[in-house]
Design a protein around this nucleic acid. Structure first.
Lengths: 115, 115
DNA sequence: CTGGATCCCGAATGATACTG
DNA sequence: CAGTATCATTCGGGATCCAG
């Protein structure tokens, strides 16, 4: 994904960053600290290595994620949130997470009792 | 859009709500208070009435927006953010807005000087 | 051989245009 | 305004490549 040049408002820019099925989840995972591709792949159920790499690449282009390469054997690469941009995004995602939780609770309380 | 039944994490739910090109912008506009369809259409450049209606409908289904119908002449319908859900979303969007602003400023400060 | 990364392509989904 | 057609973007599978 290329970064857009024209925006009506800055919100659109940020929305671009977390657009897509996986990006919010990846960022959300990375709040726990830096981790390898394989760990992310294990933690995020349903994602393929390919998707993960694609999305991480885009997040890096936007400057919200970065990576460290350890030249050892086996080769290891760790991904992490950038400071302050990546970390800042977690603030927004935290609220979204809470909204989601509240939504589910609220919905549950209205749901018919299942016996 | 139908609400998903299966989630890995609540974040996905909220992400569904602001998914799409226009929803965040619509919500963001509505933070200023209730307003009519035509006002929204004027304020959000580039949106068609059809898109606007579609997206508003989805936001209402999710419970983040609601509408009041005034039975007068001419008929008027005002859309507004729900309490507390819709208002809560504005908190998240505010952070995203700020991230977008910072991103642009930062990018600008690094850009080559144009003479 | 292992883990990281890219390419190609069809399928699914989303956005806009068109039309009555 | 709603229904449909068209166009663009995204998702995902799988093959493949590169580097220790």
């Amino acid at each position: 994904m290329k970064i857009r040049e024209k925006f009506t408002c800055p919100l659109e820019l940020t929305h671009d960053v977390i657009k897509g099925k996986w990006k919010p989840i990846i960022l959300w995972r990375l709040r726990l600290g830096e981790m390898s591709l394989s760990k992310l792949e294990k933690d995020i159920q349903g994602i393929t290595q390919k998707m993960l790499l694609e999305q991480l690449k885009e997040l890096m282009e936007f400057g919200f994620v970065n990576k460290k390469v350890y030249n050892g054997y086996p080769l290891q690469v760790d991904y992490f949130l950038t400071e302050p941009q990546g970390k800042r995004m977690i603030e927004a995602l935290s609220i979204m997470q809470q909204i989601g939780i509240d939504f589910l609770l609220d919905r549950q309380s209205r749901a018919p009792i299942q016996e």
